[in-house]
Nucleic acid binder design. Sequence first.
DNA 1: CGAATGATCGGCT
DNA 2: GCCGATCATTCGA
Length: 206
Amino acid sequence: MEFQILPQRFYLRQDVLLIARELLGKRLVSHIDGALTAGIITEVEAYRAPDDKACHAYGNRRTPRTEVMFRAGGCAYIYLCYGMHHLFNVVTGPEGMAHAVLIRAIEPVEGLDVMLTRRRQKKLSPQLTTGPGVLSAALGLHKKLSGESLLSKKGEIWIENSNLNPTAKDIASSARIGVDYAEECATWPWRFYLKNSNWVKKTKTR
DNA sequence: CGAATGATCGGCT
DNA sequence: GCCGATCATTCGA
């Protein structure tokens, strides 16, 4: 079955919270080292410069790392976290606007064997692709792919439609995870996830 | 179970 | 020099 790739106009909009919610249920696909792997996006977080202290580009600070966040929407921002995890974000908004959506979890749908091998797991379970670091590992995403376009199926990463079309009643929100340092921004309910999915990290704080 | 901890390194809020 | 948009493992109850 062929799914339609998300066009650049999807990413160019200025409302990153809306885009984050709309990414739920879409298919995230990687074609890396000759292997095709894909999963349904089940959990995301929005980050929005300049006012969001949890965003790496807070205050519109430009560094070699954050530079890609200022590009026009439709490319990947991947960075290293805790010295070992590559976290995958989607850059959104027009050029000069540093918005991004962190993909936190997917439900695997294609290339399960490849994902299991990359994660060194034997059995399919939520821990295969639930969590921003493990999802990147399963899809083979690496920070050297930061800045890659998401707009062509000839590329290494893209996002396409699925049969799912979650509506407001299917979506829950909460504060973002791991951003306690961000002061008043730490409580903003900018994490979104599919209520009925098993492929979402359980949070203890509620 | 939950909490604590070690791994490991780039970027500097 | 410090510490994170994390995860797997271990330890204790």
